[in-house]
Deep mutational scan, measured.
Amino acid sequence: MASQGTKRSYEQMETDGERQNATEIRASVGKMIDGIGRFYIQMCTELKLSDYEGRLIQNSLTIERMVLSAFDERRNKYLEEHPSAGKDPKKTGGPIYKRVDRKWMRELVLYDKEEIRRIWRQANNGDDATAGLTHMMIWHSNLNDTTYQRTRALVRTGMDPRMCSLMQGSTLPRRSGAAGAAVKGVGTMVMELIRMIKRGINDRNFWRGENGRKTRSAYERMCNILKGKFQTAAQRAMMDQVRESRNPGNAEIEDLIFLARSALILRGSVAHKSCLPACVYGPAVASGYDFEKEGYSLVGIDPFKLLQNSQVYSLIRPNENPAHKSQLVWMACNSAAFEDLRVLSFIRGTKVSPRGKLSTRGVQIASNENMDAMESSTLELRSRYWAIRTRSGGNTNQQRASAGQISVQPAFSVQRNLPFDKPTIMAAFTGNTEGRTSDMRAEIIRMMEGAKPEEMSFQGRGVFELSDERAANPIVPSFDMSNEGSYFFGDNAEEYDN
């Protein structure tokens, strides 16, 4: 993207840094990872977990959730003011799984939030270390993106479920800051804005008074975040219109849905970061690795190297396929839920299948599930090659597409044709070009129609051997075009429920 120079890199967003050079960025990201790792080690000690239990991804998720809940100030305040039966607002906890007599047992633990905050700050040299908290939120978000298709949420806001490739980060909490905003897809931002506008339509006082002023500035800020994701002048001009509207209503909703559809071809720039579970960072720190000293990046080879040398386990339900569970977590670790499966298959070195073909449910185990038949197995999170994460949407291309997802959002900077089903997408653009945004709409449609099938995206960008740390010898991959490109292809993934 041309304006790259004016933006802070995501590592800076990730670490609240002012302008830093590459070495400083690597050190501050490393410091953040160190903090998460030290916190995780301490929690495993508190909970008396064995090494194996500490490497269980379900335990990692519970521990991450506990610290996120302990620092969720708004919710904590709300819980104190609106006490609900049987919930102690000062405590947080969740299921911890232990191996007892050759069987997995679930144990519900409860801790004072104050105590968890103390352990977290102690692991982070006394700081609140917001960057580390956001990092864990993005890992949870990436896992949700890989596990669930947001059909219901899309339909509720009037969008087409086939636009799911635009929904990265749709389950990120509001408090995820600049680093969170960077990884949100165009569809996620559109959905947040539509929800806001709908509230304004239904509630006369939404934009009024002292609160209304705050609401208005939040609305304009979200519009600017979305505008910054678009790469064409016409899309940005249309966002200006939406932002400046005196009284946002149905016309703005129409414009936003139009823009979301246009992003299936004229893709937005959305950041991709490899955020790993805390149970990967903990053992690495415990083994003596100093992330701050060595430096770390979320968008280069580092996460690949770390996963190459990590042992992570997962509980497996009786009829689940461990290899499929591994694929789910591998995609989440690489922030690749909406990437082209052919690119992923090449990088991973084994075939990556669409969601609907995987015999696996989510990673988390519900409290009512029976533990008797639970097994555990090693997650295979290694890769054959590594590639640089991208934040450009890439230019655009036609490809055989599917009944489910009709476009992709690249996660890796790797040369390819970008699949999208042009006739299906263009069919949504018939007729409606009147109104105050008509010239911009016409211009956007013209650009979409001009998108050429034979153009290559990320020209000359390749993948790298894991021994090639400096990215000196790019390998331009070859793809098996007979395979499906979309992950949520004609899909039956479970729906995400809060």
Score class of each variant (00 low, 15 high):
S335F: 14
Y385R: 00
M371A: 02
M163S: 07
K31L: 05
S407T: 06
E80D: 04
E244D: 04
T437G: 04
N397Y: 03
A234G: 15
T147L: 07
M440Q: 02
P161T: 03
V109Q: 00
A260D: 10
V476M: 15
S353I: 14
R470V: 11
G249C: 03
L110T: 15
T146A: 14
E484F: 03
V186P: 00
L379Y: 14
V408Y: 09
E320H: 10
N483A: 04
F71M: 04
P477Q: 11
R384E: 03
A251Q: 10
F230K: 08
S245C: 12
M66C: 07
K7N: 07
K351R: 14
S486M: 10
Q311T: 05
M189H: 05
I63H: 03
T157A: 03
S486D: 10
W207N: 13
C279W: 13
T350N: 03
G268S: 15
N76G: 01
E53G: 14
E107A: 12
I316H: 14
R102A: 15
L108G: 03
S50N: 09
R118E: 10
T23P: 00
R121C: 09
E14I: 07
A85L: 00
Q398W: 01
F420A: 02
D72H: 03
L68Y: 10
R55K: 03
E64P: 00
Q235I: 02
L56H: 00
A493I: 13
G185L: 08
K227P: 11
F230V: 12
S28H: 00
S407C: 03
Q149A: 11
V183L: 06
Q4L: 00
E210G: 08
Y313F: 03
G431F: 15
E11K: 12
R38T: 00
R348S: 14
R441E: 13
Y289I: 14
F420C: 03
I119S: 00
D128G: 12
K273H: 09
A387F: 13
F291D: 12
S457N: 01
S407G: 12
S413I: 07
I194S: 03
N211E: 04
S326K: 11
V100E: 14
E484W: 04
A218P: 12
Q235N: 13
W330C: 09
I201D: 07
L344R: 06
Q235W: 11
P477K: 11
